[in-house]
Amino acid sequence: MHNQSLVSEVKNLIITSVNLHHLDPAAITADTSLREGGLELDSVDILEVVVAVEQQFGVKINDAEVGKQHFRTIGTIADFVEEAKSKQ
C-alpha cells in the first residue's frame, strides 16, 4: 500500500529532525502515529517535521488543513509526498 522506500526515508527524517534516537527504529512503522499512542510529538515537533519534509522532498504544505490531514502517521506522510511529487 505505502511506498516502503519512502516510508523508510520519512521515518529516518523524522527521527533525525526531532531527535528520536532514543527509540528503537524497528518499532516505528508506517502505521505509527505522530501523536498520542505513537511518537508523542507535540505541535512544535509536527511543525519541525513539516519543515523537514518540505526541504527534503521539495514539496509544499500550503495550509494547516492539508498538514492535519496528511501528517498523521509515517505512512500518510509518505503517501502525501508520493502524490505531491507525481504532480510536479
Binding site: 526531532v18 512544535v44 515537533d45 511543525l47 519541525e48 519543515v51 526541504q55
Partner: peptide
C-alpha cells in the same frame, strides 16, 4: 544557508 527556519531551534 538554506532559507529554512527551524521551529525547534527558534523555540
Amino acid at each position: 544557508e538554506n532559507g529554512v527556519a527551524r521551529p525547534i531551534f527558534f523555540q
